[in-house]
């Protein structure tokens, strides 16, 4: 049961978005957020929507999966639109009942807000989390932040910590499972009782888990030392991604869209 936890939401594939340099994808995500927030007119919103849909198609991830990922924010969407619909005061009254006055501006604004939030979420996840493996993401961040080493930010150490954490998540999940089974066999009860008693029941799971993690950490450190690890200095990488034409091209497309959005805002 506990094994079903998927880490991040990476969908392996071989689409254009999958093949882009992770550094570029991080930059693209920032650009995409800028695009979404730059859009002001209906026309530019339509373009953002079309662009988001285009991204989904390019990524090769099914619409169903993408829409499913919106589930957790449905509540946020409802609240946002309700607030906008009921509390915006405009000139064009379209519905009035008791103390409720609904104006066209409010409805309009609510629709735009919902569009903005959904495209923001879909765009960033399709660009980054769905199409980039956690390891690529860590790698991309390390390279992107490499200049910070000059001001003594331990970029390499952080990225190695991330990698090791990612590496050990399945191992520790397996171990938790094993310890829980062992405690169950001794009569531990994790499923009934109040929240407090259930939390208390987890203590005998967490303590052995912590102890074994420390032991693992110690062994891993020795093994790393044996493999000549001596910090990030003088270290090379097997995969040094070079920016390809396609990377530059994609960034250009994004910038062009940015510019178009700003222009469309004027036409509204």
């Amino acid at each position: 049961m506990i094994k079903d936890i998927t880490l991040g939401q990476f969908f392996p594939g071989n689409s254009l978005l999958h093949r882009l340099d992770p550094r570029i994808k991080i930059i693209l995500t920032i650009l995409f957020i800028a695009i979404v927030f730059l859009a002001k007119s209906t026309l530019s919103y339509l373009l953002v929507l079309a662009f988001t849909i285009a991204l989904i198609i390019i990524s090769g991830i099914s619409f169903k999966t993408v829409l499913k990922s919106l589930k957790p924010i449905v509540f946020v969407l409802i609240i946002t639109s309700a607030l906008n619909i009921f509390w915006t005061v405009g000139d064009d009254l379209i519905f009035s009942f008791w103390i409720i006055d609904i104006y066209a501006e409010g409805v309009n604004f609510a629709i735009l807000m919902v569009l903005r939030i959904t495209s923001l979420l879909i765009g960033t996840s399709v660009l980054l989390t769905y199409t980039t493996s956690p390891i690529m993401l860590t790698d991309g961040l390390e390279r992107l932040l490499a200049p910070l080493k000059a001001i003594k930010v331990p970029v390499h150490e952080f990225s190695l910590m991330m990698t090791i954490a990612l590496r050990f998540i399945p191992t520790l999940i397996e171990e938790t499972d094993k310890i829980m089974s062992a405690q169950k066999a001794r009569g531990a009860d994790f499923t009934t009782g109040s929240i407090i008693s259930r939390a208390k029941a987890l203590i005998p799971v967490l303590i052995p888990l912590f102890i074994s993690s420390f032991r693992r950490a110690d062994e891993l450190a020795t093994a790393m030392e044996c493999r000549c690890y001596h910090g990030g200095d003088g270290r090379t990488k097997m995969n040094t991604p070079h920016l390809k034409v396609i990377d530059i091209l994609t960034v250009s497309v994004f910038i062009v869209i940015c510019v178009i959005i700003v222009m469309l805002n004027r036409f509204a």
Binding site: T163, E219, A223
Partner: peptide, 10 residues
């Protein structure tokens, strides 16, 4: 323990 020697996810 092979688990405690491997560093990377790939």
């Amino acid at each position: 323990n092979p688990d405690n020697q491997l560093v990377a996810t790939i």
